[in-house]
Design a protein around this nucleic acid. Sequence first.
DNA 1: TTGAAAGCGCTAACAC
DNA 2: GTGTTAGCGCTTTCAA
Lengths: 349, 349
Amino acid sequence: MSPMPDPAPGSRPTLEAVAARAGVSRATVSRVVNGGAGVRQPLVDKVRRAVEELGYIPNHAARTLVTRRNGAVAVIIAEPEFRVFSDPFFEQQVRGISRELTAHDSQLVLLWVEGPGDYDRISRYLGGGHVDGALAFSVHNDDELPSVIRRVQVPAVFGGRPGWPGAAAEPAFPYVDCDNRGGAREAVRHLLSLGRERIAHIAGPRDQTSAIDRIDGYRDVLLDADAGLIAQGDFTVESGARAMAELLERRPDLDAVFAANDLMASGALRVLRERGLRVPEDVALVGFDDMASVVAATEPALTTVRQDIEGMGRLMVRLLMRVLNQAEPGAGAPGSVITPTELVRRASA
Amino acid sequence: MSPMPDPAPGSRPTLEAVAARAGVSRATVSRVVNGGAGVRQPLVDKVRRAVEELGYIPNHAARTLVTRRNGAVAVIIAEPEFRVFSDPFFEQQVRGISRELTAHDSQLVLLWVEGPGDYDRISRYLGGGHVDGALAFSVHNDDELPSVIRRVQVPAVFGGRPGWPGAAAEPAFPYVDCDNRGGAREAVRHLLSLGRERIAHIAGPRDQTSAIDRIDGYRDVLLDADAGLIAQGDFTVESGARAMAELLERRPDLDAVFAANDLMASGALRVLRERGLRVPEDVALVGFDDMASVVAATEPALTTVRQDIEGMGRLMVRLLMRVLNQAEPGAGAPGSVITPTELVRRASA
DNA sequence: TTGAAAGCGCTAACAC
DNA sequence: GTGTTAGCGCTTTCAA
């Protein structure tokens, strides 16, 4: 565009250079670059022009050194937790995080934890002031991450209610989660309202709080639910199919199934149809998540509990920003956020 | 572990504090922290102990300010290009990048470009010295990314041979790609060696160099290939199925198919079987990529051309590191790297 | 409103 | 070998 006087290769123009060019002090340039409040218009213009002409870009390190602000947030991904990239849930959440971070002029730094040995590196990174805060996801019970984060004292927000031992007791990390329990209740009540009387549940892994909350919601409504109506899955399609087969074995008379996620629901659906059972006539089926890729493929279309995954990602960032903007990091932990769920009625129930 | 004297909250210990505690100068502490070369053992120990006791972690910004090294590399993802997370190809490449970066003590900063408007932000980020270099992926012809990267003068390496207009002419960015053309040749020669005489090709998108190179490889071997034996796809399963149907229509006598990727091969396979054609007896089929998730699901098992995707990710990092460690960034562009491919014989051909 | 000056925490010459 | 010192590029009092 503008003729950029190519300076000594590798050397970028500094504040100093801009100041010289504009004939003002470094302080003035700094003010203009940071919004220009309290500087007279003509000077602002002069400085802006100099910035433009020189192609000046503020040096991040120098700025961070004095402001102690980085404009970067770490997203910590623990490999064993996630099939990471291939998990659409995760993709959506990261997309939300990315978008909201951009809105806050912050950068996303991906910290990929491949094994326990990586925690050293992670904690050095987090402690080294590379980032203003961290976003992590609800972790396994024996995960070191929470203690690492606590040790380096970096502000953090979790995605999903933490479930490690004592999580409830300790000064908790703020987290964002959807109303798993309430959503589950709504699903079961819906099945009830359809006149179903023997409603089974395909549960998710016992060590994930989302799965625990969903089974709790199921039990909230069906206080006296027969244990035979509950089968264990692990959130995968295959486990849903297995669980469905098991349930059919135990209770051939069941007339409805609430699966703890859509993936398992789709596995269950497959088995149901293989056995010649009609959905929803013989067995009504409700999932959880409203995961587009799954829902689009089911036939009949899956009734499910929607959670706003991208929105949760955005909320994680907002929560973190609120923590960061607090005067005293220690004072008054900002509460966690529980987002509402919504039953999406389609054909399967 | 060790009793960490909690200092004024929020204030981390500095080099100065460590020096005071160890009774040495800041310079000595700095030396020890950076490897300890040229410092006598007893002093090293003393410093190490002080570091431990204080829980000292070097401040990144301060270090960057003077060394001009960040220990961070940007990975730029252009949204329209990739289904990003859900693309297994991409996941593998990023995994390779992540691993190699860790080995080089560098951090991965994810830059997610959602639209043309984002280039401003990206270029400010890249230009602001947040990262030592950038890793990008072969982009669409009209993408601004290359020019943005060139403008801010940040060292960069591309994944996949760039194909924008004039890419060949300009001072090129180094890139890492596999030997698409050679791999395609090998696939076709293999089919030939099986005695096949009417070998069709399902091509990938015309604007991706990988697809172009593969079709070129096909033509290298089949110099006089009938145009009717080539059908256009877009690397998706569905397009593979469509292309196969089309080919069967045009040339019901074909006895082999080389698909430009595994996804399309699996679509083609489905159609072949629907039509009652036996693979490989009636039609031999070869794919490209050796993508585990696809290959595992095909029946018969897919013969394909393997490329080491994770390895390519690692190579991108190594190449970038080589650029970074060059004295003069401008001098002598380090060449690109073409990794070999390997035909993996399974049941389908 | 603007400028001068003092650092932010660290590394790298250069002395000793 | 170890310490002293001079910045890296920026923001931010404090004066003017």
